[in-house]
């Protein structure tokens, strides 16, 4: 290879067929879908790859250093798991992990169930369906800044609507925000309110793509309405529920924005403090960059741990 002339001479000596072969293959390759589609997917793919996976990789790298403060950059020569050890021994990390986990699971589950229920109700032909659909979707269109303040008023212990309503049943008043036992539930409820409409729309789209004859076949087969949904219809909504679950989890992590809007600061009541708020505090209030990066990695792993079994199951079932 060091002498290009050798190569040329060599190939000539062997004869034309191999060169032709090679050329044909090159031409074929250049005409293949892979090459021809290259400009279309490569740019977004590389931007996403760099932005997402590069970001994740870099974050993980930072978390292995001792990077903090403004004066020194991260020192990559001495990587260790010190930050993770510190995190495991930090009670605040445990508290926020627990809250994050509860938020992820409870919010996603209830929102999906509620969304499914609403979608089935709508699909069964309630009148004014379009209007109702809009009403349910509306909260999602609102900014967290608006809904957080809205729910602060709703949860006001003296004159909030929530206490007025539970008061009708002789309960309360409850200190929804002030009581550390209740505040996480209150936040989750507000988020469910905001996103059940989204879950509903996803499920409704799924339901409407199921042909009527599936319902009719089940009916002729003698299945009750409940059994029809349970055994025939809902199992066919798997791809909808995967979509809904993934997006809702993203929204669950967006609870950061909601909390920030609600309490006006990164430090939120302990009962509802999550890994994301803790991470931002460590990074931007205290400049503990490496520690914040370690918390971010923990958050990432947690999100993966929650969703991975579900996705794996769906993949096995052939829904993905």
């Amino acid at each position: 290879m060091s002498n290009p002339q050798d190569t040329v001479a060599g190939s000539q000596a062997v004869g034309g067929t191999e060169t032709d072969d090679w050329r044909t293959r090159l031409v074929e390759f250049s005409k293949s879908d892979f090459v021809r589609s290259f400009p279309f997917w490569f740019v977004p793919f590389s931007i996403m790859g760099l932005g997402v996976y590069g970001g994740i990789g870099y974050n993980t790298l930072i978390s292995l250093t001792d990077y903090e403060g403004f004066n020194e950059g991260p020192d990559y020569t001495n990587l260790d798991l010190g930050m993770y050890v510190q995190a495991v021994n930090d009670p605040w990390v445990w508290t926020t992990s627990k809250n994050t986990f509860v938020l992820l699971i409870v919010f996603t589950t209830i929102t999906m169930l509620l969304g499914l229920f609403l979608a089935i109700m709508l699909d069964r032909g309630i009148r004014y369906r379009e209007k109702i659909q809009t009403i349910y979707l509306l909260p999602m269109a609102l900014s967290f800044v608006v809904t957080a303040q809205f729910w602060l008023w709703m949860y006001n212990v003296n004159n909030g609507l929530v206490n007025t309503v539970v008061g009708l049943f002789g309960l309360g008043p409850y200190n929804w925000i002030g009581d550390p036992q209740l505040v996480l539930g209150s936040v989750i409820f507000a988020l469910i309110w905001q996103f059940s409409g989204y879950a509903m729309v996803v499920f409704l789209a799924g339901l409407q793509s199921i042909p009527d004859d599936q319902f009719e076949a089940a009916k002729v087969d003698g299945a009750s309405v409940f059994k029809t949904y349970w055994r025939v219809i809902i199992p066919q909504l798997k791809s909808s529920s995967v979509s809904a679950a993934v997006v809702l989890m993203i929204f669950a992590l967006k609870a950061f924005t909601f909390l920030f809007s609600m309490f006006g600061q990164y430090r939120v009541p302990k009962g509802t403090d999550i890994l994301a708020t803790l991470m931002v505090r460590e990074a931007f209030k205290l400049q503990n960059w490496a520690y914040a990066a370690a918390i971010a990695t923990i958050l990432l792993l947690m999100a993966l741990a929650v969703i991975a079994p579900y996705l794996h199951y769906q993949h096995k079932q052939g829904s993905l």
């Binding site: 997402v52 970001g55 994740i56 991470m279 914040a292 958050l299």
Partner: peptide, 13 residues
């Protein structure tokens, strides 16, 4: 899944 956390951590790291 990774993007979920990836984005929220972007600033941090």
């Amino acid at each position: 899944g990774m993007m979920v956390a990836g984005c929220s951590e972007g600033d941090g790291g």
